[in-house]
Design a protein around this nucleic acid. Structure first.
Lengths: 212, 212
DNA sequence: CTGAAAGCTGACCATACGGTCAGGATGCAA
DNA sequence: TTGCATCCTGACCGTATGGTCAGCTTTCAG
């Protein structure tokens, strides 16, 4: 990678290698699942000897945990959209945009996250019972208020959230299916825009929050 | 299992053992993924010695293939709802009901299917390019006709289908998350009903197909 | 310049897994 | 009853994988 063999700073080395490993791990875990992934594959993809992986991450479990926590953080960041909003149109639109962008930019991370949850969240159970639950309860409260204020129809907030998660996440997790049905090509910029617009229109109309 | 050691018919034996193996395999593949699943675990769960598995299914791949094809068939059966319908309200309602029932009754199968697609459909690529594509194109055509006939708003049929798939499948694949957010309890009959109603209401309203 | 700490790695190990096989048990048709 | 095809299984094997380690190189503070 580095053309000149300029001496690297310790900190720099650590940062770069960890980043490379995490990126490779994310991809391999996404493609093969935890059980199917091998440290050797991750090492090859990261361009490092396998033993070096164990220098940075003691075990496969530890590496996996780091990958999952990373994507969970990104996932939570999309939450901010909700808070700053004054009504369902703003809030839900922004949230859909944010989550669709995650599906597009971090499909591997999304898959790892989906896999983790599908397998019973062995690593993230704590987070789900604390952070995720708090986040969800907060958002449920916001939606409930919007309903009270007549800004949208009385829809069960939880099922609405599930719908948002499901619909947006689908474009990452089932991306391969979507590509296949798209003639084997990945979605173009325009198609991504159309996807977002369709989702927003259907859901916002569906909850009676369309802006005139 | 059999209390009396009544002699079993050959056919019967075969059928029962294959069924037991497939059921166990579905569960183990769902919980651990293909790579994480072991023939030993499947054998234990099926109550058979490992070697007996290989008598019925030569390889792990072959067993996996059978499991995946099984769920794909169930998945396709839900299609009929669409065909018999006279309009979006009937058709989409029935489809959502059917797919939600699959998520509820076959959560393991749904997870295996999701896993298969997430990992690039190594086994089902053929089916996706033939059967699934045909099915989808047919349904797209039906929806397009509904739009032409003014029975619903002009929504992109493909993205609508993705939304239906995503939303319903979510209750199986992310069932663990939903349970966690439900206080660790699985959804009750009433909650499943509410889920269905919410989804149907939001989507049907969202596409402008609400009946009066 | 020097020594210690950090970074690196080829070779190695124990284990677990998918798969095999020889040979025994069981049903069933004739 | 007999013979044979099907069914079953404990013991075994080769391989791949996660992980270890001794010893090397590189950075860098003092």
């Amino acid at each position: 990678m580095a053309e000149t063999t300029r001496p690297m700073r310790r900190q720099e080395i650590r940062r770069e290698n960890e980043k490379a490993i995490l990126l490779a791990a994310e991809k391999v875990f996404a493609e093969a699942g935890f059980g199917g992934a091998t440290m050797q594959l991750i090492a090859d993809l990261a361009g490092l000897p396998k033993a070096n992986l164990h220098y940075y991450f003691a075990t496969k479990e530890e590496l996996y945990r780091s990958v999952v926590q990373n994507i969970f953080e990104i996932w939570l960041q999309a939450a901010n959209c909700f808070d700053a909003a004054r009504g369902p149109v703003d809030g839900i639109s922004a949230y859909i945009d944010a989550k669709m962008e995650i599906s597009r930019r971090h499909p591997d991370g999304s898959k790892v996250w989906a896999s983790e949850v599908m397998h019973g969240a062995p690593v993230l159970q704590d987070y789900m019972e604390s952070t995720l639950r708090e986040w969800t309860d907060g958002r449920v409260e916001i939606i409930r208020r919007w309903i009270e204020e007549g800004k949208m129809d009385p829809v069960d907030p939880r099922h609405l959230l599930y719908m948002l998660w499901a619909t947006t996440q689908h474009y990452a997790d089932f991306g391969h299916q979507i590509e296949t049905l798209n003639g084997g090509k990945s979605l173009s910029d325009r198609q991504w825009r159309e996807a977002k617009e369709n989702i927003k229109r259907v859901i916002l109309t569906g909850i009676g929050a369309q802006p005139a």
